[in-house]
Simulated scan of single mutants.
Amino acid sequence: MTHSPSPLVIDGISKRYGDLTALDGMSFTVHPGEIYGFVGSNGAGKSTTMRIALGVISADSGEVRLGGRPLTESSRRRIGYMPEERGLYPKERVGAQLTYLARLHGVDKRPATSRTSELLEQLGLSDRANDQLESLSLGNQQRVQLAAALVHDPDVLVLDEPFSGLDPVAVNVMSDMLVERAGAGVPVLFSSHQLDLVQRLCHRVGIVAAGRMRAEGTVDELRDTGEDTYEVHVDASGDWWGDLSGVRRVGGDGTVSLFTVDPGSPTTDQDILRTALGAGPVHHFTRRRPDLSDLFQEVVKP
């Protein structure tokens, strides 16, 4: 099913618990067909933001909108939610409870049953439909939890740590499902501590700390804000790079050195390479762009 484009807008929401500020003017938008990675340390405000979007808790100020309108009890039913604290019934049969959850979201019995079968097949669980949930491995239980978020064919997906505890095969299955949903026009918001997955899957990323959005953009935009590192392996002694403006050695061992270049310095990678070649044989030279985990550490540090 192709979904009508409806952005999920988090607009200036704040939440306090006594003296603790959980959220302080949190704002971002997840566009139709976009996978948005929501990352931050424990206690940064990710789960609180998601729970407010779902109406589980209320904000002190600010607003959550879907398609330009404030979320209501009715429109929240069009959100597929996967909580960090998994909440299915362990002693109920897998297929029956998925169909039941679809019916709770207003899906008629026949399409609810059909959708359940379709999802279990996609997730490789067709043969477990009549099994109790607790008889499944933890990874397969996680797949069922994703199916529960998808079974009513939601207009928005909100997933809190969906990849936690999954083996690599299950990670790939879940990743493919999220990409498929985004391809159908669904805004997908998920939080994760697995930054390699966020970097691989997400169109845009928001990095939060202490209840505030600290950095936001595409992965490439965020990586462009960090320092490149140059790794050089050259048979030379002494500070052969010493005459290069703004070049700092930040690591290395023996004839292998790691360098950064100060912002605004006229020195280029070619300048570093030419100087290294003038000092001795160069066995290796590479430019490393910062990855998302490097940027995350830089953004959230006190």
Rank of each mutant, 00 (worst) to 15 (best):
R212Y: 02
K109P: 05
G206N: 04
P187V: 01
R288T: 02
Q132K: 07
D155Y: 09
E34F: 13
A129R: 04
A236E: 12
G254A: 13
L222E: 03
L101N: 01
G67Q: 07
L54W: 04
F190Y: 05
V107Q: 12
E216T: 12
D155T: 15
G139Q: 15
L292E: 14
M174K: 06
R200P: 01
S14C: 08
A170L: 14
R77V: 04
H283K: 10
I52M: 02
Q122H: 01
L66G: 03
R77G: 14
T2L: 13
R93L: 03
V198R: 07
G211N: 08
L20W: 04
Q194G: 01
G217F: 05
A59Q: 11
G226D: 14
E161M: 06
V30Y: 06
S192P: 10
P111M: 12
G264P: 12
P32A: 02
G183W: 09
L273A: 07
P290T: 15
T2C: 14
S164M: 08
H105V: 13
L23T: 01
L277F: 08
K301F: 02
E92F: 15
E216M: 11
E216H: 04
A44R: 00
D291F: 08
G45E: 04
A210S: 13
S27Y: 14
F259P: 09
G25L: 12
T267H: 12
A102K: 02
